[in-house]
Design a protein around this nucleic acid. Structure first.
Length: 456
RNA sequence: GUGGUUGUAGUUCAGUUGGUUAGAACGCCUGAUUGUGGUUCAGGAGGUCGUGGGUUCGAGUCCCAUCUUCCACCCCA
């Protein structure tokens, strides 16, 4: 009885072709992170549920994958727990969960190791995370995040450096048309004060975050639905419709927020970030100030970012922001951090949609050795040894097979060159070196072949 | 979590109001070609129709459940 194997919902295999492309993205990100002084960190796939729960809101808790206790997981549960429902039963049968993002495990790490850390601590982390979400295009239940965070400094240089890193990574990847949207949590707070909806900040944010998706009318409707007064929504209207350059928007908002100390502080932060950016003289920084950017995660308290690639059907590919008190829930207050994350799976989808993966992302074997009989196969092994000694990615067809089969193998693996060896080649010491793309073939000594290959 | 959608050969898809033995293209294998792949030609293999029930004389087709896919909402990378 054989059964067809299947994958769990929302998970994927990555074949060699995909991995070549994925690694291309990973290494671009890694190089940039390290160039900016971030050090790698890895944390376990599982965390204790006490670490994870309550950090992402009720919605987030629901999306956590819980791991059943090992052994007799029912042993601690009583009938009364079972009768009381899942919420009561859960802690009795599950103590661990798969991590939901990289920021909370990072905060946990900082707290556990704070005496050893050189503050400010800069780390990057590239690992899979899991969410029990319903999958869709660009949304998976297992996906990779690439986080870089700095903790232990309030300096806005960090924010500027995030903008620089995003620019560098996208330049490496060849993504040209994108916007780094930036906003500030304090500006959002300021706006709610200015329009007379103080305290309604999170309702306000949830509503305006949808602006580009559902349009201004529906946003105003949603605000009313969330208990923001008619008068306030009317006041919000011109603010949400702000246009012009970053400088113009800032000037305008300064006026609107003149009575909000918090709002003005947010503006000041933004100005400083942009001012610092100037000293790095980028041709184009892709930054756009977007007052409607809110972002869901509630722990952000300062600048917030989101990156959108234009003219593709994928949502944001990167996001982040500053959080003043991330480690507070673990008993270490007043440690400010700022960080952001690249969504590799989405960047992959974007690059696939734009068809901009370079040839180098499709690395394969460079040379296949093809042989006709046992003698030439044996001779081929010594040739193979020479190729590998100089670092050429090479392999020999391991079985004795017809040349057609061996050539088919080379085609299928997209191998650029073949070296064909038979009795003639052994006798003359001149090997048949074939370019698989052009079909051209010439008889060369091994040394000449090595010279040819080193050019590529 | 709510509502909808999808599933037929390795892959992409046909398959009539329920009616004989479920098709095509591409891919795969063999040969034409025993020292040369991509092209061409000839032949061949490959399907518990997602899974489990039900209705019917008869189900790929209708009904129910379940899994999966994609989409919208919620939320998010």
């Amino acid at each position: 009885m054989s059964q067809k194997p299947t994958l769990p919902k929302g998970t994927r295999d990555f074949g060699p072709a995909q991995m070549g492309k994925r690694n291309f993205i990973f290494s671009a990100i890694k190089q940039v992170f390290e160039k900016y002084g971030f050090m790698p960190l890895e944390t376990p796939a599982m965390e204790n549920l006490s670490v994870l729960t309550g950090k992402y809101g009720d919605e987030g808790d629901q999306l956590l994958f819980k791991v059943l206790n090992s052994g007799d997981f029912l042993s601690k549960a009583k009938e009364t727990d079972f009768a009381a429902g899942s919420k009561q039963l859960l802690p009795k049968i599950s103590e661990k969960g798969l991590k939901y993002d990289l920021t909370v495990p990072f905060a946990r790490y900082v707290v556990m190791n704070r005496h050893d850390l050189a503050l400010p601590f800069k780390r990057y982390q590239i690992q899979p995370v899991w969410r029990a979400d319903r999958p869709q295009k660009g949304r998976y239940r297992e996906f990779y995040q690439c986080d870089a965070d700095v903790v232990g400094t309030n300096s806005l240089i960090c924010e500027t450096e995030i903008i620089l890193m995003i620019n560098e990574v996208f330049a490496k990847l060849g993504i040209k048309d994108f916007d780094i949207k930036i906003n500030h949590r304090k500006i959002l707070t300021g706006i709610t004060q200015a329009i007379g909806a103080t305290g309604k900040e999170s309702d306000f944010c949830v509503a305006i975050d949808k602006l580009d998706k559902i349009g201004i009318d529906k946003v105003l409707e949603e605000m009313k639905g969330r208990g923001i007064s008619e008068e306030a929504t009317q006041k919000a209207l011109p603010i949400l419709a702000l246009t012009g350059t970053i400088e113009e928007k800032i000037a305008h908002l300064k006026n609107i927020l003149q009575n909000s100390e918090e709002g003005l502080q947010g503006i000041k932060d933004l100005e400083e970030i942009l001012e610092t950016l100037k000293t790095f003289d980028l041709d184009q920084h892709h930054v756009d100030f977007d007052v409607t950017l809110a972002r869901g995660l509630s722990y952000y308290t300062g600048a917030i970012f989101e990156v959108k690639v234009n003219n593709v059907s994928i949502g944001s590919v990167s996001g982040g922001g500053r959080y003043d008190d991330l480690t507070g829930v673990f008993g270490v207050p007043d440690l400010s951090g700022v960080g952001f994350s690249f969504g590799v799976d989405r960047i992959y989808d974007v690059m696939e949609e734009l068809d901009i993966f370079p040839e180098e992302a499709r690395t394969s074997t460079e040379v296949l050795i093809i042989h006709f009989d046992d003698e030439s196969k044996k001779y081929g092994l010594s040739v193979l040894n020479q190729l590998r000694k100089v670092g050429i990615k090479s392999e020999i067809y391991p079985d004795s097979a017809k040349p057609k089969k061996q050539f088919d193998y080379a085609n299928k693996k997209n191998i650029s060159y073949t070296i064909v060896i038979g009795s003639d080649e052994i006798a003359t010491q001149k090997l048949s070196f074939k370019n698989m793309a052009s079909g051209q073939q010439e008889k060369l000594t091994l040394e000449e072949i090595l010279k040819q290959l080193s050019k590529h």
